[in-house]
Amino acid sequence: MKKVLVIILLVIIGYFLANTFINIPFGENRIGDINAEKPTAAGYYLSNTKEKSKVANIITAIVVNYRGLDTLGEVTVLFLASTGIASVLYRRKEEEEETERLSLPSSTIIRSGARVLFPIIALLGIYVFIHGHLTPGGGFQGGTIVATGFLLMLISYKGFNTNHNRMTWIESLAGLTFIFLGIWGLIADNTFLGNIPEVGKLNSLLSGGLIPIIYIAVGFKVAVELTGILDILLKIKPKK
């Protein structure tokens, strides 16, 4: 009886939401005239990024420069999630006996494959976040790829341990780099996260001012945090 009522309620809600989405014309040009006097936000980004910011990838310019405060907020959310997981789940080793990550050794294919693949995956991740302002990609994507490489090593080898001390240093230093680059903008340009785009020319590695440096810091921070979270999760003793 309850299931029937819930399904009816969902149908009503679905009807109203579908009514809203049907009226949006997909596939047409809804940005408007990008050279008008007062364009929409999307039109302004499209027409002005090449001259004013000198960054080839407009998405990176939007994420780091135009809406930089949102990116700072998201990096903070990831940091707080990692702190929260550590405070709820992490136990020091002196409290219990050794929690083992793997009860049986993994098969030979995984062990030999992981040893070869791990440097390649890490290199791909670092490439993605260093070239964030030229090709699609960026700090979050590259950091996640590096963390996936670490995960492969963590589930293949019993003896592979990550050094929590070193990871805490890298994480804090990367976060402080982001904020201090923002404060540099505050002191030099009088707005937080202001950019200095006169450095370099378009489409080369050294272009776009502070944008690639911020993205590299974000990439390191995301990689280290996700590896820490996965390490803590894998060490919980399974209940049998």
């Binding site: 980004y45 707005t191 202001g194």
Partner: peptide
Amino acid sequence: EIIAGWEAPWGI
């Protein structure tokens, strides 16, 4: 206060 130097509807 404007963040990152872009004024109101195009920045935060």
